[in-house]
Amino acid sequence: MSPFCFSFQTDTRHKRHFHRAGTLLLFIGLAGLLFVGMFSGCSCREKEDPPRTPPAAPPQESKETYLVFYAPVKTVDRAGNPLRGMLPIATRSPNAFDKPLAQGKPTDADGLSSIRFALTEKIALRAWDPQLFFFPNNFFDVLPGSGNAKDPLVVVMVEAGTLEAVLILPDGTPAAGENVGLMMFHPVHGPWWPAEAESNEKGEVVFPNLPPGSFILRLKVESGATLETPEQYIAPGENTHMGVLYLKAPQSSSF
């Protein structure tokens, strides 16, 4: 037998054995890689969530935020009958000098309306007749922090009064054809209502559409003479005649 043939056979056997061994090693290697890959792809630690952005803080209310007050309002006459066309108003003082801070719609046939206003200070709530046939007999002080009114706030309106007088100048003659100024002072609330009228040739003067009640009256004619009366009652819906009033010479103090 040729040695080459033997060697060939011997080499063939070794090659087959090596091939089998290589195949086994390759299989084991692939299995190991698969095993490692399975465990490397599965982590035993729980994944951590990404950090979350904290929620934004709620906006703080402005220091200028104020309370809004709301109230239904009902206007009636002295007999309790509803009055149409009256205006609910809110002012700092209940006199005739403060411009309304807020105003409601005219009252309806049932005397009902409402008003809404910012309540940052003490407010006087009342009603107003644009035609000056009626004046409020009461008002409501509304203080900061007051809750909304549920029931209507009833404002009693009384008929306007009329004041008449005959004015005599310091020299004893009638204050004829003079422009006469009148200031009414409330005994508690101070200056309350201004008015003016023209006197006739006899010195007679008439002030219509005045708020009724008790007031101190201060009069001054255009030529300068003045007079301050004691507390005088002006009746609602009537003419109040003060008779003859003797004016005094003008003083250095202003009217």
Rank of each mutant, 00 (worst) to 15 (best):
M1L: 15
S2F: 11
F8H: 09
F8D: 05
Q9V: 10
T10S: 05
D11L: 11
A21E: 06
L30G: 05
G32V: 09
L33W: 04
V36L: 14
R45A: 14
K47T: 07
P51G: 11
Q60E: 15
S62L: 10
Y66D: 09
A71N: 04
V73K: 02
D77G: 03
L83E: 04
L87Y: 12
A90Q: 10
T91D: 11
F97I: 07
K99A: 13
Q103E: 15
G104V: 04
K105I: 07
D110E: 15
L125E: 04
W128K: 09
W128E: 09
P130R: 02
P130L: 02
L132S: 02
F139R: 07
F140L: 09
V142T: 01
G145Y: 01
S146P: 00
V155W: 00
M157K: 00
V158I: 01
A160G: 02
L163I: 03
A165W: 01
P174N: 04
L182A: 08
H186G: 08
A197S: 14
S199L: 09
K202D: 12
P208D: 08
S214V: 09
L217E: 04
L217K: 08
E222W: 09
A225I: 06
A225V: 06
E231I: 10
E238C: 08
E238D: 14
V244W: 00
L245R: 02
Y246K: 11
K248W: 05
